[in-house]
Design a protein around this nucleic acid. Structure first.
Length: 579
RNA sequence: GCGCCAGUGGUGUAGCCUGGUAUCACUCUGGCCUUCCAAGCCAGUAACUCGGGUUCAAAUCCCGACUGGCGCACCA
């Protein structure tokens, strides 16, 4: 049987200590993997490089929030309701289907927002049967992709394992905004585990139930989505696969991706603004930096119907793999103000930022004075929400209210809170509204957010696969020196005449200079080189007979297998300059 | 979740049909040897995925679970 590349890579990863399946002695569970010692080092190197790009170069600041998230947060973000699929099972052939999908297929109707009961009623009413065997369909049930847990004793407080790290950033937005002294734009990052209880995870490390995300949230003024460093990157050429070309059936699949300068993509309206474009470029640079093969990278724009409910423009960095084809490794989305708005509405906390105008403006506006003696008794605890709502109404809304009150003597104020809309009757004697001229120096805005989100596990796998190289007589990982877990192997050519002692001394000297080096004296020298090749170690140093005479050693380079001879004193410097 | 197929040392395997102390090679560990690319010699570690059933006896037959592969479905 011929093994494909995935199998070869996973074999090597398992054998040499990159990836192991989790809980193996108890039989294992699909969708979970352990990073073994070398895999952990490799993954950490990927993350370190990510930090260098985002935290150091892009000046994002990183936070670290809990993975367990209370119900309210994910209710607000829409995950409780939307991160779940309605499933229906055929009573005959036991096949499962997406309930909304089969309804939409058979009666051509938009089922968006319908409840389970409504879906069930539709199936019954239109006599929809199993698309496979024609059998009767059962109850419509929800399958939620979040792991449910409880907080505290008694299990009363519901919580979930977070499905993405992003929410932790959004819910701290007020603190973050003040940390950045209320100046847009600013970037916040989070690296950590996220959890999705996939129905049927396959494909090893490609689809996990617990995985590591590195997400950046770049908050911008909703009307200013330019990027101050766009000029620096505008001539960068990217392999783009825009939605329009994906849908263009006159193009061959392999002609659809087009290399173009990011500034041209912007000019032609392919990308919606500079900030999206900027992070596309940063993503390409990061992926190239860690050693992803640029010829196996493309940026694919989401088609209008596949875009998540919160996004207005979304691009995936896709990396080509031998077995799975193009897989999504990075998502770059304009999430607009979807999340901040949701958390603002549900929590009642104002998440807007005050943005000053260039100079003060005089505007005609309305002054609303509440008659507290009256409204206090009527609305009691709800008053603060009413006050808040009135304060934030725009001119049109106020005028509409004034008109209503003048006409009917009353106005129905609608306030959304915790996902429910409450109505309050506002009468004429509740408030006094007068026109005034106000000098205003700025306005409150709810920022939009541009989100580059990286799947670290997939990227790490792709890196291994792209590095995997075969020659006639050996297998080696062509990892670049920055990524390789072990930087140097140190060997005595033979175990005599003081060679082991000298080699050990060199290994220790490298280690004390912060360089990960491994000593090995077992078997023949060739075997030791092969071992190091297989785990991707870029350099091997060998102490031989000549070392005893002139204090030089050989340095062998992994890819070329060529050797040069240098002084022992220069070894640390030589390696340091190359990793 | 559904269907089909498969699970034997670290890896690759023989044995399974026809039940009776599990084969071989490589790897790995220790030693000898070895002066530059998986050499050789000696010794050693190391496996029947798990749970039930049938049987005097199960790697082998039967059932179930788990894991993996493929197909379907799913992947906000």
């Amino acid at each position: 049987m011929v093994k494909d590349k995935y199998e070869k890579v996973m074999d090597l990863a398992k054998r040499r200590g990159y990836l192991w399946s989790s809980f193996e002695i108890y039989g294992g569970i699909a969708g979970f993997v352990d990073y073994a010692p070398l895999g952990t080092m490799l993954k950490n190197n990927v993350i370190d490089t990510w930090r260098r790009h985002y935290i150091v170069n892009e000046e994002f600041y990183e936070i670290d929030s809990p993975t367990i998230t209370p119900h309210e947060v994910l209710k607000a973000s829409g995950h409780v309701d939307n991160f779940t699929d309605p499933m229906v099972e055929c009573k005959g052939c036991l096949e499962s289907f997406r309930a909304d999908h089969i309804i939409e297929e058979s009666i051509d109707m938009d089922t968006e927002g319908k409840s389970l009961k409504e879906l069930e009623a539709l199936i019954e009413k239109h006599n929809i049967s199993c698309p496979k065997c024609g059998g009767q369909l059962g109850e419509v049930k929800r399958y939620n992709l979040m792991f449910l847990t409880s907080i505290g004793p008694g299990g009363k407080r519901r919580g979930y394992m977070r499905p993405e790290t992003a929410q932790g950033i959004f819910i701290q937005f007020r603190r973050l905004a003040s940390f950045f002294r209320n100046k847009l734009p600013f970037g916040v990052a989070q690296i950590g585990k996220a959890y999705r209880n996939e129905i049927s995870p396959r494909q090893g490390v490609i689809r996990l139930r617990e995985f590591t995300q590195a997400e950046g949230e770049f908050f911008v003024h909703p009307k200013i989505k330019t990027h101050e460093k766009f000029k620096d990157v505008e001539n960068e050429v990217l392999p783009l696969l825009p939605a329009s070309r994906q849908m263009d059936e006159s193009l061959n699949p392999d002609e659809k991706t087009i290399n173009m300068k990011i500034k041209d993509a912007l000019r032609e309206g392919i990308i919606s603004h500079e900030s999206i474009g900027y992070f596309l470029v940063i993503t390409k640079r990061f992926l190239m930096d860690i050693g992803i093969d640029i010829n196996k990278l493309r940026f694919r724009q989401h088609l209008p119907d596949e875009m998540a409910h919160y996004a207005i423009d979304c691009w995936d960095a896709e990396i080509y793999t031998d077995r799975f084809g193009w897989i999504e490794c990075v998502g770059i989305a304009d999430r607009t103000d979807y999340d901040l708005k949701a958390h603002m509405n549900h929590s009642g906390v104002d998440l807007r930022i005050f943005v000053e105008y260039d100079g003060p403006k005089e505007v005609e506006t309305y002054n609303i004075e509440l008659n507290y003696k009256v409204v206090g008794r009527i609305f009691k605890g709800d008053l603060k929400y009413i006050e808040n709502k009135l304060k934030n109404m725009d001119i049109e809304e106020i005028e509409e209210m004034v008109n209503e009150i003048n006409k009917n003597g009353r106005y129905t104020l609608k306030i959304e809170r915790n996902g429910e809309i409450k109505e309050f009757e506002i009468l004429k004697d509740h408030l006094k509204i007068s026109k005034t001229i106000k000098k205003i120096s700025g306005e409150k805005v709810l920022p939009h957010v541009i989100e580059p989100s990286y799947g670290i596990d997939r990227i790490t796998y792709c890196l291994l696969e792209h590095a995997y190289s075969e020659e006639e007589d050996r297998v080696y990982l062509n990892l670049n020196s920055k990524m390789a877990p072990i930087k140097v192997g140190v060997f005595p050519l033979v175990n005599k005449e003081n060679m082991p002692e000298i080699a050990l001394e060199i290994k220790n000297r490298l280690r004390s200079n912060g360089i990960i080096a491994q000593y090995d004296d077992s078997g023949a020298i060739g075997r030791r080189y092969m071992r190091m090749d297989e785990i991707g170690t870029p350099f091997c140093i060998t102490v031989d007979g000549q070392t005893l005479k002139d204090e030089t050693v050989t340095v062998r380079h992994r890819n070329s297998r060529e050797q040069i001879r240098i002084k022992i004193d220069k070894v640390v410097e030589y390696i340091k300059n190359r990793i």
